[in-house]
Design a protein around this nucleic acid. Sequence first.
DNA 1: CAGCTTGTAATTATAATACTTACAAGGTTT
DNA 2: AAACCTTGTAAGTATTATAATTACAAGCTG
Lengths: 137, 137
Amino acid sequence: MNSEYAIAVHILSLLNQGDGPYSSEYIAGSVGVNPVVIRNVTGRLRRAGLLHTRRGVTGATLTRRADQITLLDVYRAVDAPQSMLKVHQKPNPNCPVGANIQCVLDDVFVQAQAALESRLEQVTLAEITSALHEKAS
Amino acid sequence: MNSEYAIAVHILSLLNQGDGPYSSEYIAGSVGVNPVVIRNVTGRLRRAGLLHTRRGVTGATLTRRADQITLLDVYRAVDAPQSMLKVHQKPNPNCPVGANIQCVLDDVFVQAQAALESRLEQVTLAEITSALHEKAS
DNA sequence: CAGCTTGTAATTATAATACTTACAAGGTTT
DNA sequence: AAACCTTGTAAGTATTATAATTACAAGCTG
């Protein structure tokens, strides 16, 4: 898991403040990374339909209200893995355990991942913004 | 996340078959990694109190029944991260969003992680063994 | 004692992640 | 139109994480 997910939420939180437009360079300053990283992440968010950008013109805008964007939407937008729990790659197919462990583990890992994603689905960008305001005051 | 967790479950599943003792080299053959990797993981499992090994003597044995070992026990035994979702490291403290995003995100990530772990807690080693037998038949 | 085992430190190899440079494509301003 | 911005992307480098391996001390057993 890389940190693009956290960066994506950070970007959307900024956009949701409203007083834009924000250039990729400005956002990069807030996030603490190179502007190219911002442009790559906004690219994914755009392809996922969460925001709108135009080549050559400064700023990005959300395509829908913040209470209509869940953290699961964001998770799926970035290149997040199917399951964060990794199965080992080379079990011995000649061993009764080795032959089937990947399949059995994958079942469990998918269920655990679903539980995690279900929790992310319950949090909206609007709630993140609220929490940020609360911390700031 | 590394694959030590999957390897740990694999090891415990082997031990739960009963017809041991299994040397680290034998286990390595089933898992598909170097014997040293097995010895490192069994070391963590031993320190977590899940199995018993002795220097110089072949084999490892479970310290309790398989239905008393959950996948969460195993997860905590290996060096699994507090949260699998990573917060970005260098947000700008002079920006209202950057100053608080880590804290807000961490709250959410901890909750999501708890949901995942709760699911792991519901699965026992005994159930993994059952699933393996079912697949094998 | 000889020959095995496990435990652990240290090293190397490989892969994942992060960072940066470079530049084309497109818009805006004068 | 020209100068100067912006975003989108590809490509290359640096850094870090992970995996694999070597080496050997500590310990058991016959």
